[in-house]
Design a protein around this nucleic acid. Structure first.
Lengths: 346, 346
DNA sequence: GGCGTGGCCGAAAACGTTTTCAGGAACGTA
DNA sequence: TACGTTCCTGAAAACGTTTTCGGCCACGCC
C-alpha cells in the first residue's frame, strides 16, 4: 500500500478527495485510476484492485460537474411544473422521480407557480445547467403553449403541448368517463346522472363525452336530462344533487366528475335518507385517497394512473436523450377502483 | 462588429455557444469577455458594451458546470424528503423552492420513500454533484436519525434531527394546541373535548399538552374526562364522537387533532342533529384546505405555516453556506384560521 | 538475435469557465 | 526625452475529470 500521506492531506485540509488523491495512494497515474474505476478493459486486474481499494479507503466520489463538463452530459433533468400545490403534479412528479432514481440521474425541481415569466426564467437556468432533458408538468389537462425549439428533448405530461410536433403524455379522460358509466351499468343501474365541474376544463367535457357514449350504446338516457356542469367543489356536489333529486327522484346512480364533488353528493344523499349504494350508487373520479377512501361509504372512483404517467414520461425522456424524440400525444388509460359505494343493485 | 462567422459556426454545428464564441464575435479575449459579463470593473465601458451585445446576439448562457468546477460552488442544493405523497412535505418543499427560486440556486429533489438505503444512495449522489447544502424534510414531527458529519451544511425541517448539534426547524405543536383551545374559550365554550390521532406521534401528544395547559389555566376540566387518542382518520373521528356524546352529551366544543378527524366529528354531529357551531363548536388542525374549507360548515383550524417553515429553512441554509451553521431546534409558531365552525356562543 | 505482437500504463489535451498577473498604451510631468 | 502612473487587455493556470495515443515491456516466433 502506498504512502498514506496523500489521503491525510486531503482529509486534513478539508478539501474534497479527488481522483488525484486516489491515484497517488494507489501509486498509479490519474489516467489509470480513472480507467480502473470506470471498468475500462485496458487495466490489469491487480492494478484495478489497488485503485478500487484506495478509492474506498478515501471514500472517493467523482466530481459530477467535471464529468459532465467533459462528457457533455450532466446526468440531470429538469422537472418544470406549473403548480406544485396542485394535486395532479405530485403523483406525476413522484413517478418521474422514481423512474430516474434507479438510474444515475438527478432531478431539478422547478415550480413556475403558473407564471409565464417565472417559467422562462427557470427554463433559462435549467439550460445553463446543461440538463439532458425536460419534463413539463401541467396543472390541468388542457393544451399549453409549447416551449418551442430547445437544445434538449422535452416531454409534456398531463397538459399536452399545443404544438403537435412535441411529444405529450395525457390521461384518457374520455375512456375514464366511459369506464365509470360502464361500471354502473354492469351493476344494474339504468338511471344514471352526471354531476361534474367547470365546463371550461377539457377534463370535464371529455369525461362527459365518454359517459354519454357508453349510455348511448346501451340506449339509456341521462337521468336528470342534463349534464350538471358547475365547480370542482363539494358545495357544488351538494347543490347539484339537490336539484337533481327534485327533477328526477328515481335516479339510481350518480357519476361525479371528481371525488370532491362525489363527497358533496354523498352528503346530500345521506341527508335525504337515500341509502348508498342500496338505493343510489355513487362513483367519483381522481381516486384522491383522503377523500375517496375515507368517505362513508368508501367511494368507488376512477384513477388516472398519474404515477405511471410520470414514470412513462421519464422513460420516454430517457429514450429521447439518446435517439430521436417522438411526437404527438400518447394517452394513458384510467383504472377503475371499486369500493363500497357501487354495489350491484339487487 | 466582428466577423459573424464565429456565431454561425456555433449555430450551425448545433454546438452550444461558449464564451469563446462571444469573445471572438466581440473581438476580444476570453478573459476580457468573462470580466465584461461578470461586471468586473477593470474593463472599458465600450468594450463591455461590445461583449454584452455579442452575448445577446448569440443568446449566450454560461455553462454552470464549468463555473461550479472553478468556483467550488455549484449553486445547487438538495431537498431530501422522506415521503413526497405526505401532505406535509409539499408545502415545505414549495416554500423552500420559492425562497431559492429568486436567487440563482437550483434544487435537486430526492424522495427516499421512507427507505433508509435509498436515502444513503441519494445522499451519495447529491454529494458527488457537489451541492452547496441540504434540506432534509421529514414525514412526521418526531426526531429522525442525523445524517452525521457532512462536508456541506444540513437543515432538518419538520422532523428534527436526533443530534442536538444539528440545526432543526419544527412546528410548535404545543403552541398550536394551546391556540385552538384558547380560541374556543374566548368564544365562550366551557366544556371542551379533544379527539386526536395516534398517541405514538409526538404531534398528537404535544397538541394535547398545549390544550390541557390552556384548560388548566382557565380552571376547566376536559369534557369527556379523557383525551381520545386513536387514528388519524375520519372513521376514528366519527367513532370517538359517538362515544364522547354518550359519555358527555353536554359538550359544547370539540378540538380535533387533524382536519381529517374533524370531518368525522362534523359528520356525526350532523347525524345527531347537533348544530355546528350553534350547539357545538369544532376546530381542526392542519388547515388542509380541501378538507377544511369545503366542510359543512367551513372548518376553523390551526395552520402550521409549513410554507413559511420551508422558506425559513432555505434562508437558514443560505446563511449557513457562507458562514457558520447554527445548531439546536428552532420552533415556528402556528396560525389560527377562523371559519364558521367556531362562532361565539350566544 | 531480431522482430512483430499484445498488454498495460501514463503524458497530455480537452471540456468551459474564472482569476491572476504581466505588460502595453496613453498620458502627464520633470 | 526619460519616467512614473493609470487604464485596460490577454496569456496562462486552474478546477477534476475522460480519452486518445504513443511508448515501454515481456514474450513468442522465425
Amino acid at each position: 500500500m502506498g504512502s498514506p500521506s496523500a489521503s491525510d492531506s486531503a482529509a486534513q485540509t478539508g478539501r474534497a478527495v479527488t481522483l488525484r488523491d486516489v491515484a497517488q495512494l494507489a501509486g498509479v497515474s490519474i489516467a489509470t485510476a480513472s480507467k480502473a474505476l470506470n471498468g475500462q478493459p485496458q487495466v490489469r486486474a491487480t492494478t484495478r484492485e489497488k485503485v478500487v481499494r484506495a478509492a474506498e479507503q478515501l471514500s472517493f466520489s467523482p466530481n459530477t460537474l467535471a464529468q459532465g463538463l467533459i462528457t457533455q452530459r450532466s446526468g440531470t433533468v429538469g422537472l418544470l411544473t406549473s403548480d406544485l400545490e396542485g394535486r395532479f403534479s405530485i403523483p406525476i412528479l413522484m413517478g418521474a422521480e422514481d423512474a430516474f432514481g434507479s438510474d444515475q440521474t438527478s432531478v431539478f425541481l422547478c415550480d413556475a407557480r403558473g407564471d409565464n415569466v417565472r417559467e422562462r426564467h427557470h427554463l433559462r437556468a435549467l439550460l445553463s445547467r446543461r440538463v439532458d432533458g425536460l419534463i413539463v408538468v401541467g396543472a390541468r389537462p388542457d393544451a399549453r403553449p409549447s416551449l418551442g425549439e430547445l437544445p434538449v428533448p422535452v416531454i409534456y405530461a398531463y397538459s399536452p403541448s399545443d404544438n403537435p410536433a412535441d411529444l405529450s403524455l395525457v390521461t384518457d379522460n374520455v375512456g375514464g368517463g366511459r369506464m365509470a358509466v360502464d361500471h354502473l351499468i354492469r351493476h344494474g343501474r339504468r338511471r344514471i346522472a352526471h354531476i361534474t365541474g367547470d365546463a371550461t376544463y377539457g377534463a370535464a367535457r371529455d369525461r362527459a363525452t365518454g359517459a354519454l357514449d357508453r349510455l348511448a350504446e346501451e340506449g339509456l338516457a341521462l337521468a336528470g336530462d342534463q349534464i350538471w356542469y358547475g365547480a370542482w367543489s363539494e358545495a357544488w356536489g351538494r347543490g347539484a344533487t339537490r336539484m337533481l333529486l327534485q327533477r328526477d327522484p328515481g335516479v339510481d346512480a350518480i357519476f361525479a366528475g371528481s371525488d370532491e364533488i362525489a363527497r358533496g353528493v354523498l352528503d346530500v344523499l345521506h341527508q335525504e335518507g337515500l341509502d348508498v349504494p342500496g338505493k343510489v350508487a355513487v362513483i367519483g373520479f381522481d381516486n384522491w385517497n383522503i377523500l375517496a377512501a375515507n368517505a362513508r361509504p368508501p367511494l368507488s372512483t376512477i384513477d388516472m394512473n398519474l404515477e405511471q404517467l410520470g414514470r412513462l414520461a421519464a422513460q420516454r425522456l430517457f429514450a429521447a436523450i439518446d435517439g430521436e424524440l417522438g411526437s404527438g400525444t400518447e394517452t394513458i388509460p384510467c383504472r377503475l377502483i371499486t369500493r363500497e359505494s357501487t354495489a350491484p343493485l339487487d
